[in-house]
């Protein structure tokens, strides 16, 4: 059922609360009530995004800068769409071809950028802590869109939105995060957010891809996939980076697929209503079978992309709500 724009504005007015912090650097910036508020707000944006007219003027006059030091298609376009649908002026800066490539330091870039007076700065960088460093040097709100192996908090938020919409709740669900946890910022943000919302989080993967102390993160650690996903409501697969496949962390892709790739046989031990997620891009036939990835009765992978725009709209709108005019 299509909502009238006036209804949308009413809903937003009741659900939009200022973001609890000036920046969104990690999942720990949110307490459970903040998470619930953001998810409630995002639900409105999901409905809006399914309409022909998707544009609002909540961020009219605001400038959003996407600063991606690492290549990304889906996250960058997701933030770009989110900004545009909220009415912000959105600029993408491709840092690979910019002055950074000519040797400018991250802080110099920040200072230069600051002079252009953006309101919202979305940053992705290959170094853990890069977003936090930038946030100390600029006058605008910084959103971490992935910093090294540290965090990717909007991904965790969109994952939670997908889970909540699929199950109606998050607390009490058993969620198995499988694969290369060691190098995954998605996993780190998800562990924090899911734990905060009362889910039972399991980490599953070979010992070379799970941090040695991960059992202290409030999670259960499994090195056997069948044991790890037994009875799980959600199986969240992680991407295995190509450079880790050839003998350094795992012996080969075929061995990885045999023991840690998600196929029907392994999935059969999960809960009956199991849903499968993946932050993308997928290595089909390595960490996940196409058969599962494309099965819409099981896979939430397409939903995750859709939820991404809505969740980021919720984050941008509430960050802007605490900005000075």
């Amino acid at each position: 059922m299509a909502l009238m724009t006036t209804d949308v504005n009413d809903l937003i007015r009741t659900r939009l609360l200022p973001f609890p912090k000036r920046h969104f650097l990690g999942a720990q910036d949110l307490d459970p009530p903040d998470i619930m508020n953001l998810l409630d707000l995002a639900d409105v944006f999901v409905d809006l995004n399914r309409q022909t007219t998707k544009k609002l003027d909540l961020l009219k006059g605001r400038t959003l800068v996407n600063m991606f030091f690492e290549n990304s298609t889906r996250t960058q376009s997701s933030f770009e769409l989110a900004g545009k649908r909220l009415g912000a002026d959105t600029v993408n800066m491709s840092m690979k071809t910019s002055s950074v490539a000519k040797g400018e330091t991250l802080i110099d870039t920040a200072v230069t950028l600051n002079a252009m007076k953006p309101d919202l700065l979305v940053v992705r960088h290959s170094a853990s802590g890069a977003a936090a460093l930038l946030s100390q040097k600029v006058g605008c709100s910084v959103i971490n869109a992935g910093d090294g192996q540290h965090q990717h908090p909007t991904q965790a938020l969109l994952d939670m939105l997908s889970i909540r919409r699929a199950f109606g709740h998050v607390d009490g669900l058993t969620i198995a995060i499988c694969g290369d946890v060691s190098h995954s910022r998605v996993a780190r943000s998800n562990v924090i957010l899911l734990n905060a919302m009362g889910a039972n989080v399991r980490l599953v993967g070979p010992p070379t891809l799970i941090p040695g102390d991960a059992d202290e993160w409030g999670t259960e650690v499994y090195h056997n996939m069948r044991e790890g996903i037994a009875g799980a409501n959600v199986v969240m697969m992680l991407r295995l980076q190509l450079e880790r496949m050839d003998g350094a962390f795992i012996p080969s892709t075929r061995e990885y697929y045999r023991f840690f790739g998600l196929d029907r046989e392994k999935l059969a031990v999960a809960a009956k209503d199991v849903r499968v997620m993946h932050p993308g891009p997928m290595n089909r036939g390595v960490e996940i079978d196409s058969d599962i990835a494309d099965d819409l009765s099981v896979s939430l992978i397409q939903d995750q992309v859709e939820m991404g725009v809505a969740a980021r709209m919720a984050v941008l709108a509430s960050l802007a709500a605490r900005l000075e005019n």
């Binding site: 350094a248 012996p251 075929r254």
Partner: peptide, 18 residues
């Protein structure tokens, strides 16, 4: 334990054990 016994890349321990 490592491919070609060269001490550089892990061999397929899981598949061989199986």
């Amino acid at each position: 334990a490592t491919k070609e016994n060269k001490g550089q890349k892990m061999a397929e321990i899981g598949l061989m054990a199986e």
